[in-house]
């Protein structure tokens, strides 16, 4: 395992060096493909604005994801408790997932303006489904015999839900949460592309239109880094919650 870890780092370093050399030899014009060093300089130089944009995007991502968490939690419990709710709503949730984000984003802007609302909504829409599926299938994965045991010991629905179903659901819930975490940042950025006053997406559009590709690359790196950090955080959280697995 250790050896492979070294290899993937080596590949990244190699690509970066190759990229730098290609830029320095001017094989590709500098304004089209800035070198890694130029990107780094742009990132540091424009850090204040990028930092502010980051905060706006993070705010939208977290709000949307928080809302998605809350709604999926309530809905998953309802679906678990009442079969008809599951039968009535789950298909709609599935269909809602087949609608491309890119297609619905302009509509959301049209309906809710250029403020924060459409961004949060788009994040909500992209994050909601993985979370819901994670919880619902997680509840279903609870050992049927353990559920029966709880019943035989006189455990009621909510007691059983919190004591048995939630712990059993944690694994698939975290799988959903990891997907949602990476979607949330990308979702917010896509929504920002379509207009607004701030955020990484707006910054991205602005520098693209003025052909500042060094800044463009800088902000792409930031978006990736944010997604990775968030996923890493979820992973850490998962390890803590599922510590009995180790």
């Amino acid at each position: 395992m250790k050896k492979f870890k070294l290899w993937d780092k080596a590949v990244i370093v190699f690509i970066l060096i190759l990229w730098q050399v290609v830029g320095m030899l001017e094989i590709v014009p500098a304004f089209m493909l800035p070198t890694p060093i130029e990107v780094l300089v742009a990132l540091i130089g424009d850090w204040k604005l990028i930092g502010e944009s980051c905060l706006i995007t993070l705010y939208e991502a977290f709000t949307g994801m928080g809302a998605a968490l809350l709604v999926s939690l309530v809905l998953a419990i309802c679906m678990d408790r009442f079969k008809f709710v599951h039968e009535a709503l789950f298909p709609i949730c599935v269909v809602s997932q087949t609608i491309p984000t890119i297609a619905i984003a302009p509509l959301l802007v049209l309906w809710f303006g250029f403020g924060v609302t459409p961004k949060v909504l788009l994040v909500f829409l992209t994050c909601f489904f993985p979370l819901l599926v994670g919880l619902v299938s997680g509840f279903d994965s609870a050992d049927k015999n353990v559920l029966r045991l709880y019943r035989s010991m006189g455990g009621g629905y909510f007691k059983t839900l919190f004591d048995v179903k939630f712990p059993y659901a944690m694994e698939s819930f975290f799988a959903g949460l990891k997907v949602s975490a990476s979607y949330s940042i990308v979702g917010a950025v896509i929504a920002e592309w379509l207009g607004g006053d701030g955020g990484l997406g707006v910054y991205m559009t602005r520098v693209r239109k003025s052909f500042q590709f060094d800044k463009m690359f800088a902000v792409i790196i930031v978006v990736s880094a944010l997604s990775l950090l968030l996923m890493k955080f979820v992973e850490k959280l998962q390890n803590r919650v599922l510590k009995w697995k180790q």
């Binding site: 050992d143 015999n145 353990v146 045991l149 048995v164 712990p167 059993y168 944690m170 009995w244």
Partner: peptide
Amino acid sequence: SDLLLPFK
């Protein structure tokens, strides 16, 4: 089976 809850 013993049905011990694995997470407790």
